[in-house]
Design a protein around this nucleic acid. Structure first.
Lengths: 215, 215
DNA sequence: GGGATGTGTGAAGAAAAATTCACAAAAGAG
DNA sequence: CTCTTTTGTGAATTTTTCTTCACACATCCC
């Protein structure tokens, strides 16, 4: 059962969200302060967080980047009564997955939650692969280059990938492409190869690594 | 020089954006319809697109997902006069990188453009760096285990590391320890081995990866 | 149809990574 | 000092990964 964390200082709204989501069959945890939410998030894993923007103590906007850091795979829906476009844009920039404006109907909440949980499930799928396979796969420079190339150019045909990278021997590319496919980083739609969500994540990880080590 | 594509049906605003960006030293292309913009984007590559939301013919919102598909690495700034939060959220959901509300000052435009171009530059360089050594090093399960062990127990002597991990053959551990040392993840103070700051970061990266890819 | 180009397989060989073994200097323990 | 444990080196071997090559079959263009 999917675990959802609700963080809102407004008691009534919080209880109402909890009820709606519980009725929909999710497992809900709730707290009224961002600080408490972060602690929970550090210890346990949630598929989704509903986060109020305006709260006493730490605001939702402050909490958001920390959450992204603590649990990058967890989706965050930002909630607010004061709907300025600036806030919405800011939240999305920080990596919020969605943005709800109070008051909202239960149906809106459920639609957003379902969409994101579906997304999360999808991103998680192909998850038979462990860190070992993933890191082993990313350890190779040509494979990273292929990932990068596919990320930039989008869906590409086999020979285009080869040419793009200036590699004469197509079987070599084929070899690595196969490994990328087996790791679930790349998939093939007809004649076209493209990154899976998982592949994008892997690339993010490489970037994350490069950023951290680059000092 | 970085290539930017401006798509806006409002002639004056378009020319004004073109001028501001040209003065800032970018190479600018402009058109007044989304359809034309998509054609351009299919043939040439741009670092950044400024896209008006409301236009005759295809709207910016319709064009956005197609752009994301054609050129995933290209950042798109959505521009609109009618600033509803719904539109902003919708645009960000579809993968817009930023959202500007008319009228905006030239400085706002430039700030957003610079931020995104910087981001794009970074993402492009991502996989090329020294990630090779680091990832190669982290690809091995035993080395990750050693890192983990040293992170938990702190500074440890050689034989303690071996015993801690239940490895009979000390030369094996020695072999990997040496590689970790050469990668700068571990260093040796007297008889004691310990993680370097770099080693801690590497471990963070592994955790980050595991969190994102696993469950 | 026929030739060019695109896509893919599997096996052989080369290269790199990991394991094992034989050995030895230093450090401690008695 | 002597015996044991700790810490280490380097070479031989095995295993894994990567590259190269030979070829097959499809697809597209004419």
């Amino acid at each position: 059962m999917e675990r959802i964390l609700v963080i809102d200082d407004d008691h009534d709204l919080r209880e109402s969200m909890v009820e709606i989501l519980q009725d929909a069959g999710y497992e809900i945890f709730a707290c009224e302060r961002a600080e408490a939410g972060l602690e929970l998030l550090a210890k346990q894993s949630f598929a989704l967080v509903l986060l109020d923007l305006v709260m006493p103590g730490m605001s939702g906007m402050e909490a958001l980047p920390r959450m992204r850091d603590l649990a990058p795979a967890t989706k965050v829906i930002m909630i607010t009564a004061f709907s300025t476009t600036e806030n919405a844009v800011m939240a999305m920039r920080q990596g919020a997955a969605d943005y709800l404006i109070k008051p909202f109907r239960g149906e809106e909440l459920l639609t957003a939650a379902r969409r994101l949980l579906e997304e999360a499930r999808f991103e998680k799928s192909g998850a038979a692969v462990d860190a070992d396979t993933a890191l082993g796969c990313l350890a190779n420079a040509m494979r990273r280059e292929i990932l990068l190339n596919l990320a930039q150019r989008g869906s590409q045909r086999f020979m285009d990938v080869c040419r793009e990278m200036g590699i004469a021997d197509h079987t070599k590319v084929n070899f690595h492409l196969k490994i990328l496919r087996e790791a679930g980083f790349v998939d093939q739609k007809g004649k076209n190869y493209q990154l899976t969500p998982r592949g994008h994540q892997a690339l993010d990880c490489v970037r994350y690594l490069a950023r951290r080590l680059g000092n």
